[in-house]
Design a protein around this nucleic acid. Structure first.
Lengths: 259, 259
DNA sequence: CATTGTGAACTGTTTCACAGCG
DNA sequence: CGCTGTGAAACAGTTCACAATG
């Protein structure tokens, strides 16, 4: 899900390039990089699409927003495309990143290799726990939250990663924003509110699992419907007992379509 | 990003409920749970929407797919909605999960609290490194990959989390699927291919950062325009010249710096 | 009479299908 | 001829705006 904004026009065709396309560029880039390493000179939309896990029409449409970088009858020049997409994504420059919250997750992120691979560089690690201060994680000394503003100011970071507990996320976010950060990757399970102009993307394990559970449940229900799953506990709308759009007399029973 | 399928009809209105809506249910559930803990009895679409970070029309539309659970002039009964959404998401049942790849990330996931909170239970931890076998992580002994099939068979797990290096992800995926797993949450930076009927969702740090970098770059470019941006900096498709690793002395010049 | 529930309009995304071109 | 690039059609998701109603 592309968050980025909270309300606002939302999907605003960034710079002519649709959000959905932007979200796929990194995927293409990864596939292209692999081809490049194998010294494959050109690739067709069909092949590249397969490698990236999308269909070829979508890929061609996506590339068409970047310009006409292919050669009809031949395909795309791998190196050239790698460069164009990198440039488009802004990966030809260095992006220092600060990670706040060096718990299990924060440490894992700091150690994550793919991090450094594409122009991203961990510029600082920050945590509120004084016992961590000065300790090295992934080769970088953890600094104390008190220094947050100063660190951001000095390192010129514009991307912040929040890996703190949910309870402190908004506070950390506010400080990051006040200090000049304009892009945030949030791993804390909370909705962050930020001022206009600041982008937030979130990664939420528990949400992903819940979505999987939803589909998993459907699969189970399909093969053996007539299931009664869990009891019909829950109280009805309580108070005025309200009605029940009532799709079936037994009320609760899920399954049946909403019709 | 809502993957789930690789090709296929994609967004298939699951059980009448649009994918986009399903993806937001966990968000509503979280906000509702917080209200419930504060013993708030009812909530309006406006209030709940604000807490979940969406707009109220969207929220009402989303809820309308679940049924008519609100009361006009009043709002929604918090407890009742919590139950209905939980049931819809399949969270009224227990979902054992197996995590494969107990490196920094896998360990962080195993320790992640929000994991257990909503019906998800770490049933087993698996890693290919023999030196980890038998060692406890988050209170659970790591088991060796050799046991994978047996573990899955015995624990009746249907959701698998892949936190291995990219190189082994597809292989692990294949084994999980062969052993009966039908939902996979993939943290490895690779496109997994799975047979029809298996859901895959991916969480990819580096992709999220690249998307942020794209927007960040635009912001930088905006404030200092006068930029020609569309300029044909890099080399043209290089008809037959191919290779370009060399972007050109000046062609390189990326946008201004983000400061 | 505040607030839900929802048709209808709209905006964004995907897919189709084929003209254009190397 | 093969493959790209792209209008146009189809589809999905969001927002509007208001009638229905507890």
């Amino acid at each position: 899900m592309a968050t980025g904004r909270n309300h606002r026009p939302a999907t605003t065709r960034s710079r002519g390039i649709p959000e959905a396309t932007v979200a796929r560029l990194p995927l293409y880039l990864r596939a292209l990089t692999a081809l490049s390493e194998r010294s494959v000179p050109t690739v067709s939309s069909e092949e590249l699409a397969a490698a990236a896990g999308v269909n070829s029409a979508k890929l061609r449409k996506d590339f068409s927003y970047l310009g006409s970088y292919g050669t009809r009858g031949v395909g795309y020049d791998v190196e050239y495309l790698v460069y164009q997409i990198s440039r488009e994504l802004g990966l030809t420059q260095d992006w220092p990143v600060v990670i706040v919250g060096i718990g299990n997750l924060g440490a894992a992120l700091a150690n994550y290799g793919g991090f450094a691979s594409r122009g991203f560089r961990v510029a600082a690690l920050i945590d509120a726990d004084p016992s961590l201060t000065g300790k090295p994680v992934a080769g970088i000394d953890v600094q104390h939250t008190d220094q947050l503003e100063q660190i951001i100011d000095e390192s010129g970071v514009s991307i912040g990663v929040i890996a703190t507990p949910a309870g402190s996320a908004q506070q950390v976010c506010d400080r990051l924003v006040a200090a000049g950060i304009t892009s945030i990757l949030n791993f804390a399970p909370t909705v962050l509110s930020v001022p206009e102009g600041v982008d937030v993307r979130k990664v939420d394990l528990s949400i992903e699992l819940q979505i999987l559970a939803f589909h998993e449940q459907r699969k189970a229900g399909e093969e053996a419907l007539g299931e009664d799953e869990t009891a019909p506990p829950a109280a009805p709308p309580a108070a005025a007992v309200t009605k029940r759009t009532e799709p079936g007399s037994d009320g609760d029973r899920p399954a049946v379509m909403p019709a």
